[in-house]
Design a protein around this nucleic acid. Sequence first.
DNA 1: CTCTATTTTTACGGAACCGTAATAATCGAT
DNA 2: ATCGATTATTACGGTTCCGTAAAAATAGAG
Lengths: 239, 239
Amino acid sequence: MTEKAHHAVAREDNALLAALPTRERNDAHRSSQLFTLGFGAKILEANTRSQHAYFPIRGAVSLIRTLSSGPTVEVGIVGNEGMVGVDIFMDARTQLNDAIVQGEGLAWRMNAEHLLLRFQRNGEVQRQLLRFTNAFITQVSQTAACNRAHSMEARLARWLLMMQDRVAAPQIRMTQQFLAHMLGARTASVNEAVQKLEAARVIGHRRQEISILDRAGLEAMACECYAIVCRVYEQAILN
Amino acid sequence: MTEKAHHAVAREDNALLAALPTRERNDAHRSSQLFTLGFGAKILEANTRSQHAYFPIRGAVSLIRTLSSGPTVEVGIVGNEGMVGVDIFMDARTQLNDAIVQGEGLAWRMNAEHLLLRFQRNGEVQRQLLRFTNAFITQVSQTAACNRAHSMEARLARWLLMMQDRVAAPQIRMTQQFLAHMLGARTASVNEAVQKLEAARVIGHRRQEISILDRAGLEAMACECYAIVCRVYEQAILN
DNA sequence: CTCTATTTTTACGGAACCGTAATAATCGAT
DNA sequence: ATCGATTATTACGGTTCCGTAAAAATAGAG
C-alpha cells in the first residue's frame, strides 16, 4: 500500500519543490535557507501574516486552532509533501491557525515576498502550490468529518501513522499531554487509547515516546482517514 | 454586529463577482447562466471533476463528506459570499465532497474551462477567487475544531444562523433527518437540540420548518464559530 | 542516592450522544 | 374524511468521553 512509499524513504528535498522544473527548483533553493524544525517551535502564529513559508524536508508540523473556550484542536499535519504558509499566496487577510513543530526535522524557509513573486510569475510554481493547497483542503475536510465520527482510538492510530510517515523514524517523541492537545481531548483519554493500542500489540510506549511495532496492524485500527489523506497527497504531488 | 450586514439585504449579485472590476464582472455574467438552486439538488459530486462553478446570488449550498462507515458530515456552507467548485482552478486531481443545495435560491453557473481561463488570465479575478478559497479553508478548519469541541445545541444554533444569512428568509425549510445528516448525528439528537432552542424561545418550529424568533438570543447560544466565520468572509470579500 | 518536577496512570461520578426502535403527529392523495 | 406515508418525538440501555483530581512512576538535578 502507501506505507512503503512514505516510510523509510530518505528525503533529499521537499516534495513540492522537487516537483518543480529544474530552473524553478534551483531558484527556490537559492532563495531559501535551511531551517531546523526544533521540537515545539511555533513557526507560524494565528492572526499574523506569515513572514516565511516552510517547505519541510523531514519532520512534521501541526496546524492548530485554539478555541476561545480553551481547547486546542489540530486541523492538519504538514510534512515533506507540502508547505506551511499557504496564506502568503492566497492573498489572505486572516489566518487563524498556529503552526507547531511536532516532529523534529529540517525545512527550506523562504521569504514571503519572494514566494509570492514566484507564485505570480511562474505558472508551474503556481499550479504546484495550488494543487497542494487543494489537497490540504481535503485533509482539513477529512479531519472535520473524522472529528465528528471516529473514536479516540482510531484517531490516535491515524495520527501516529501520519506522524511517522513524516518524521521517518521508528519512534515518535511527545508527551501524552501534548498529544491530547492535538486530538482535542483529555490526557486521560489519550492514555486510555494508547493502552488499547498497546494491548493490541501494534505500538509500544515509554515516557515521552511511542514506537510503532506493527504498522499494518496499526493501519487496520486507524480510521479510513489515514488512507484517504495519503492518497490525496500522492495524487497532488505526482507532476 | 455582523447579522445586520448579512441579514435582509436584497442580494443583486454574488458577492465574489460583484467585487470584480466592471469589465471582468460583465464578462462573468455574459459567460454564465442563471441557475435555479433547487432544494436538495446535488450540484457537485464527490470524486468527479466539476463541470461548472456556481456563484450563488441567494441560497445556500452544503459541502458534505460521506464516510465509508456510513455517516455524512457537512464541512462547509457556501452562499452569496462565495462559490462552489474551487477545485476547478486549484488544478485538483480529487475532490471528495458532494455539494447539495440546502436553501433554495439562484446562482450564476459558469463553465469550468471558462472559469479556469479567467483565473489564469486576470490577476484580479485570481486574487478574488484565492482570497475566497483561503476564507473557505478557514471555515473548514473551524468546522474541524467545532466538531470536536462544541455541543450539538451550539452547533445547531450556528448552522441555523449561517443558513439564514444565506437564504435571507425568516424560515428555514428542511427535515430534521436532513439536518442530522449535516451535523453528523441522529435525528433524535437533533430533535432534542431543536427542543432546547425552542424552550429558550429563540426559535420556533413546525414540520419541515424552523423559524428564528430571536436572532440575538440564538447567536448567544451558538458557538464562537459563527462569529468567526462571518468575520473571515467579511474580510475576504472587501475589495 | 535522594529530592523534586514532570509525566503517566487510575479513579469516579456525570453528561452527551449513540443504536435501535416503537409511538405519535402531520400531511398529501384518493 | 380516511388511509398511507413521511416526519417528529419519545424511550431505554449502553458507550464514550468529560471534569476533576489523586496516586504512581519516571527522569533529571544536586
